[in-house]
Amino acid sequence: MSPLLKIDLNRIRYNAAQVKQKCHKFGISVLGVTKGFSAIPQIVQALLDGGVDGLADARMENIIELRNQGFCQPITLLRIPRLSNVDNVVRYVDTSINSEVTVMEALGNAAEKKGLLHEIILMVDVGDLREGVLKEHVLDTAKEISHLKGIKFGGLGTNMGCFGGVLPSTENLGLLVELQHTIDRQLNIKLQVISGGGTSTLSLVEEGKVPVGINQLRIGEGILLGTDTTNHRTIPWLYADAFLLEAEVIELKSKPSVPIGDIGRDSFGNIPQFVDVGVRNRAILALGKQDVYVEGIEPLDKNIKILGASSDHLIIDVTDSQKQIRVGDDIAFRLSYSGLLSASQSRYINKAFIGGPI
């Protein structure tokens, strides 16, 4: 049997509802981010059933597929639009994040030709050094945006934790609110949306420390996995096992822990390192690097250790497992965000859903 990704839709609905409830308490809307699971429609529907206020994705391919499947909810594009793709963006997307005036001009022209008004969120770089204009350039950029036809200047946003690892704080999120006030005061533009990041901002929500004025978060990992990688924590009030990956044991033997012979490079060009801990019970699973990002999975049984992987095989040490492992058994794994990202789009991994439509 092929590796299997088990997806508990009930737990995803629950997590979405919990996140929405906590955020709405502070006047913060929630966009359910669909890119982490390749916008699989059953999971998208679970997010909506849980009450998210809109959807967001970084891939136009996912967004177009969602529209073709009949999803008519507001969708935000989370990657700066390509200049070569503005026609598709204004056709399929309600809102896009932006930092380049040239692209915003092109979006406006494309929207005008179609008789549309495309909303943009101006991204501000508050320190993570990914997308966004620096704070000292925000007012001038806002002036340029205000003259664009076909464009609705919807608000300001920022991204944290994805490149530089910078954590959200009352200070850097407060900067967005200050910039909103400056734009209102000097340009008489009343922005509707101040988007304060994603899952990494939930800890501030829990503590009641999100600055007043932040009114949107874009949540993926927290709802899907109940984790917050940037803050290195499991979120205690959410399910952390809505996704489980299972793979079958295809060999089980006692073998030395160090290869015999001269060590060269493995099939991926790396020189492997081994520690001699004697003869161990080793299982090979029908799961490899071509199936999933191996560094993004962790055995559910904490007594099992991943030793390594090739393109088609995962080698694990099962010596200390309390369960007797046999050929044909399935071994279960939790996934990190990177693991889910790869498993969800892998055509070699089957998907099974627990909990149907409500």
Rank of each mutant, 00 (worst) to 15 (best):
G115A: 13
N188K: 15
L238R: 02
K6H: 05
I12R: 13
N231K: 15
V166H: 10
P41A: 10
Q273S: 10
Q192I: 12
V52M: 07
N68F: 04
G278V: 13
S342W: 04
V166G: 04
L245W: 09
I271C: 04
S254H: 08
V279M: 06
I194E: 12
N172E: 07
E246W: 03
I121Q: 11
S311N: 07
G220D: 13
Q273P: 00
V30T: 06
S311Q: 11
I151T: 06
L148T: 09
G196D: 05
F26D: 10
D317A: 10
A142V: 10
L204G: 09
L175W: 06
Q69T: 14
S257C: 08
Q18Y: 03
F153D: 08
S96M: 04
V138F: 05
G32H: 10
R185F: 07
D8I: 02
S96P: 01
Q273E: 10
H118D: 12
Y92M: 12
Q192D: 14
G157Q: 06
L31P: 00
I64L: 11
D49H: 06
I331S: 04
E206N: 12
V166L: 15
A56Q: 09
I28C: 10
L307E: 09
Y92G: 12
I331D: 03
T227G: 00
I121N: 11
S200P: 09
Q345F: 01
A352K: 09
I260Y: 05
Q186D: 15
N188W: 00
I316P: 04
E65K: 15
G115P: 12
G165Y: 09
L224A: 14
